[in-house]
Design a protein around this nucleic acid. Structure first.
Length: 196
DNA sequence: ATGCATGAGCA
DNA sequence: GCTCATGCATA
């Protein structure tokens, strides 16, 4: 039995074309056909006994923790850029997790999914670190929106006091529970509008 | 999650 | 022809 390598396929288009991604099994090493003890050297460092079971379970748990669906994993595999590996369907990922694939198939897919998992967790960690670096700074600020009632109040205030002092603005901001800068900027925009 | 279908490679 | 991996469609 010559284990060779490629198992997965599909360079394919995830969205369309039914049935047209296959190549495989030929690849899969047909180690022992039936009943042959798991001997024969040359198998990866991957132990296939019940490690598969353990891995499949860990895989599923971690995947879920990452908030990734089976379908997501399947399509993400393509971006993994592993030689003969393309995308896989949600079905296959599901079957892997539930150990309902053939033993050989499980063994073939394990390293691939393991690679994906490592990548996914790596980039996930980055997302937790980066925010720190420029969270309060470079982070996108949401556009400020002022509710109608506040707008009316602002209109009224500035109608009476077109050029309020910094203290006045601060007082208005306090009353309306807005940032002082928000009030100041709103007034400026208001003036611009009135010129139109 | 799973039934059914498909197509590849092999014997 | 048979086995196997895999996907679509659907429950």
């Amino acid at each position: 039995a010559g284990p060779d390598g490629s198992v997965v396929s599909t360079p394919a288009h995830p969205a369309h074309m039914a049935g047209m991604n296959h190549m495989h099994q030929a690849a899969i090493n047909m180690a022992h056909a039936h009943g042959l003890p798991p001997h024969m050297g040359m198998n990866d460092v991957d132990a296939d006994p019940r490690d598969l079971e353990a891995f499949a379970e860990r895989f599923k748990q971690r995947r879920i923790k990452l908030g990734v669906t089976q379908a997501d994993v399947g399509s993400a595999l393509a971006s993994l850029k592993i030689p003969g590996v393309g995308s896989l369907s949600q079905s296959t990922i599901c079957r892997f997790e539930s150990l309902t694939l053939s033993h050989n198939n499980m063994i073939a897919l394990k390293p691939i999914l393991q690679a994906w998992l490592e990548e996914a967790e790596k980039s996930h960690r980055e997302k937790l670190n980066k925010p720190e670096l420029f969270n309060g700074a470079e982070k996108k600020r949401k556009r400020t929106s002022i509710a109608a009632p506040e707008k009316r109040s602002l209109e009224a205030y500035f109608a009476i006091q077109p050029r309020p002092s910094s203290e006045k603005i601060a007082a208005i901001a306090e009353k309306l529970d807005l940032k002082k800068n928000v009030v100041r900027v709103w007034r400026t925009k208001s003036l611009q509008r009135s010129y139109h």
